[in-house]
Simulated assay, not measured.
Amino acid sequence: MIGEWLIECLKGIGRFFLNPLFYLSIILAVVSGVRRMKRERKDFHVSIYPIFHELRYLFPAGLLGGLTLSVIAMAAGFTISFAMIAAATCTTIILAIAGNHRLLSPAFTLGAAFAALYAVKTLGLHLPLFGSAVSQTPQNSLAGFVILMGLLLSAEGIFMSRNSSKSGSPRLRKSRRGLTVGAFQSKRLWLVPVFCLMPAGPLVSHFHWWPVIDWGGHSYSVVLLPFLIGFQQQIQSSLPEEAVTRLGRQIARLGVLVSVVAIAGIWIPYLPVAAAAIAIAGRAWISYRHRVRENANPYYFTPQKEGLMILAVIPGTPAEKMDIKTGELIFKCNGTRIQHKADIYKALQKNGAYCKLDIIDTKGEIRFVQGALYEGDHHELGIITIDEKKKWDGNEAS
């Protein structure tokens, strides 16, 4: 039996690389990196992160999340039909092209797939590629599909919260008064591989309670499915880490609610439909509330009367080594008061090998940082700032 399971798992991993979502995720991550670099260079004349920054975060968090979800899915015996896989893949590809990262929440990708499958089942349609397979889908199998959607929605929220400090790219914007201000585009992709069961295959159940959620068959095969999760929001009225963490917690709680309602749908008809509707409406509402909040509140990253606002810190530079953070305010450098970026250059000329900064942190407390400067270090310490009260120039930002 162990040998049979091992062979099936290896076959399932092989099927993973046949799914177009695996290759689409890589393409989207690379394209996203190229576009970000072009925007950063246009805004700041330097790229903050390397071109493969998005690709770097595509797999690690997703692999850990996928392992956790795989344990849950295999323990419960989730089965997923070819029709479900095809529907989820098609909706993800369409939404990725239509809305880039914005529409790649499981609430939208799997929610749209569920809506299509449920409509076909309710109307009793016979699709050319699937025959009557969809219309004959048992109630608890559709409930299992929505449970998986709820779990992936919770995973989206957890990924956002844990990667909140790494998911933002600075940009310049025009304020309501026509001034140049700073904002963040928080954007991330995660590829989550999850082991599930497909009906028909060499594996059979050895426990009376397993599988809990099944297609209605008696034999199964293993498949490793890639689920693509995306997130994109603009943040301008608060620190990006705080905003993304808040959104992540809201989405994670929504995912738990969807999963609970969907589990009840195994026994109560129409609850899976209600759970899918809650997921779609709830996720859209969270994004809408965030946009309203951002537009109503004042900009966080603006030119200051005293000091220099830090918009971002370039990785690997002296500023990062001195632990300077986004949102902090530099008001002295080597004992000289700072108002503009040029003031830092003048202060460093007093002692080109050493830098001492007086900083007001995001809690309003004063702290002191210092460090040695070496030949070849970034000539601007590696900080991106908002330091001039000037009218918007359309050439500064995209």
Rank of each mutant, 00 (worst) to 15 (best):
M1T: 08
E4S: 12
W5M: 09
W5P: 05
W5Q: 04
P20S: 00
L21Y: 00
S25C: 09
L28H: 10
K38I: 11
E40W: 07
E40Y: 10
D43T: 08
D43I: 01
V46T: 09
R56E: 06
L58H: 08
F59C: 08
F59Q: 10
P60K: 13
A61D: 05
G62L: 03
L64M: 08
L69G: 09
S70F: 02
A75M: 04
F82S: 01
M84G: 09
I85K: 00
A87S: 14
L95R: 02
A96R: 06
A98G: 10
G99H: 12
L103H: 07
S105L: 04
P106A: 02
A107T: 00
A112M: 09
F114G: 00
A115Q: 01
A133S: 03
Q139W: 02
L142R: 12
F145N: 00
F145H: 01
I147L: 09
L148D: 00
G150V: 04
L152A: 05
L153G: 04
S154P: 04
A155E: 08
S161F: 07
S161I: 02
K166C: 01
R171N: 12
R173T: 10
T180E: 07
G182M: 07
F184H: 06
F184Y: 13
Q185H: 09
R188H: 15
P193Q: 06
C196P: 11
P202W: 04
I213S: 00
V222T: 13
L225I: 12
F231P: 08
Q236F: 07
V244L: 02
R246W: 09
A262Q: 14
G265F: 07
I266Q: 01
I268T: 08
I278H: 07
A279P: 05
W285G: 10
I286G: 12
I286T: 14
A296P: 06
K305T: 06
M309V: 08
V313N: 03
V313A: 05
P315R: 14
G316N: 15
G316W: 12
G316H: 14
K321L: 07
E328Q: 11
K332S: 14
T336M: 10
I338S: 14
H340N: 15
H340L: 06
Q349P: 04
G352Q: 15
C355E: 02
L357G: 05
T362I: 12
K363I: 08
Q370L: 05
L373Q: 14
Y374M: 09
Y374I: 06
G382K: 11
I386R: 07
W392T: 05
N395Q: 14
A397L: 07
